[in-house]
Design a protein around this nucleic acid. Structure first.
Lengths: 129, 129
DNA sequence: TGGTTATTTTCCCACCTGGTTAATTACGCC
DNA sequence: GGCGTAATTAACCAGGTGGGAAAATAACCA
């Protein structure tokens, strides 16, 4: 599995069953059986999902007699959000040089768009000193 | 692959290489070769990453002579953020009944925590009518 | 038409994932 | 100790993913 926590978090979130589990957990701590209730899958399958969530640090588990209740843990969600936040300016419409080539898109009939592609190493053939 | 877009998005974000590609793309559209530059991996490997990102709708590709420049697309990031936002109250410290059992955690020496586990089906044995 | 550059496709590999069923562990209770 | 409930582990399968090397495309240039 992924070494870095952020990858583990996103990987854990990349499954509808696990997201549903988190949604349910946001309403309060529950047992595995309770958690498995709304799904069509077997209990072991749910256990595996919980393990993924636990490895990602998204849930913590305690022991209460023979129950292992799960509780939502905030940190990974917070970290994931922090990463996304980093791009907020982007999806909200105002960017760095992004608006530059967005504007460019509008007027892509103009020959001015020639600078769009950085042309990384084209002139390497004879002038790369 | 995942049918639902959100899963596809999170799955795409669950890889450091792909996140690095997005970070680079946030600074401006570039070619595949340029994008592959900072990584140790082969060009085909990068192509595959781009395909994952494209399937998730995180990038769009155009054609500029023999280059297929990639551009960051905002929607999936926005949607992922919207999903996370849903939990913001949670990681920021004030929740529904969450604060209930968080407070409970603090005083877990008190026998009051007996209600912590919902005890889904325990009393079924003789008094479940 | 042939050459050069950019990128993708194909085929290969090892490994993780999501699911199954069957067996096993962990408690609490009587 | 033995039963019942909660949950996990084990073994297995299909399929996806991340990587590589080599070959194939695509588009421009001369």
């Amino acid at each position: 599995m992924s070494i870095d926590p952020l990858s583990a978090t996103f990987a854990a979130l990349a499954d509808p069953t696990r997201r549903a589990i988190l949604a349910r957990l946001a309403k309060g701590e529950t047992s595995v059986t309770e958690l498995a209730q709304p799904f069509e899958m077997s209990l072991p399958a749910v256990t595996k999902h919980l393990k993924v969530l636990e490895r990602a640090g998204l849930i913590t588990r305690s022991r209460e007699a023979q129950w292992r209740p799960c509780r939502l843990a905030p940190k990974p969600l917070k970290d994931a959000n922090a990463w996304l936040e980093h791009y907020r300016e982007f999806w909200e419409g105002s960017f760095d040089r992004l608006e530059d080539y967005l504007a460019d898109l509008q007027g892509q009939k103009r020959p001015a768009r020639a600078r769009k592609v950085p042309t990384p190493k084209k002139p390497k053939r004879g002038a790369h000193t």
